[in-house]
Amino acid sequence: MKQECVEEEVAFLSKKILELNKQLMESENAKSKFLSLVANELNNPMTVILRMIEHLKIVEDESNRKTFELICEEVLNLDFRIQNLMSAAEIESGDIHPSHELVSLEEIIEEVLKTLRYLIDNKNAQVVVANRVDKKVVLDSQKLFIILRNLLSNAALYGSQNERIELETMLEGDFLVLRVTNEGEGPDIEYKPQIFTRFAKAPKAESGLGVGLSIVRELALYFGGTIDYEVCQGSVVFTVKLLLDAAAEDSVACGSNEFFFDSFDDAIEL
């Protein structure tokens, strides 16, 4: 009898939450629609620009060369923002396709730093990389790239001038741990829930769309991982953990491989 009462209560409360949630979703749905629309509208011309820019020839002139470099950097910067919007829209549409590749962390870090060179130079920041993962790992390289790029670009963007940014990577059990430390005040711990929400950013932040960390969190969770940050004595530490084992076996939702590869021979049909 008691069990039934509890179940009825849960059913009632669940309905109530569903109703309330609907109002919340209606106001948020506009954001979702806008996100996917904008992402696609921006991405197409961007792709063309990225392709065409390679074919531009520079008339040998120092000031021309500088202008051209600046344009290239800004185009890459813009592309990064658009790629972030695309990722957010993909996650929200349930259209994420995991891929599992043998990746070298060193190469990915190098690639990320290359694309952030302008930002880092601008802040006159010094990036110190301590990569303690000497073997290749099985992961989705593109998603790892997005995670690392967001963490490092945030560190450069929100950190102080002439700062030192540290990137540490290591293996802890089944997890790949990425730790980014930078000098600066960082987002207040009390804003923790908001920081990982889209279109929200640190109250004092001047630029950025506020989607980066929400993407990093979703991607980390997608790989059975976590993200967290700490602020102490003038530095901010972001730590992302990604589960390697699950990614390797391509069976996050499955406890036993025997079961996973089992046939449907004597299955129930509904």
């Binding site: 569903l18 919340l24 979703m25 990982f196 929400t197 889209r198 993407i215 969190r217």
Partner: peptide, 18 residues
């Protein structure tokens, strides 16, 4: 999970989104 809590992305990890 059944409900999106308003935090993070509106991902289809939640029933009322999915």
């Amino acid at each position: 999970l059944p409900f999106w809590n308003g935090n993070g992305l509106q991902s289809p990890k939640f029933g009322n989104i999915a």
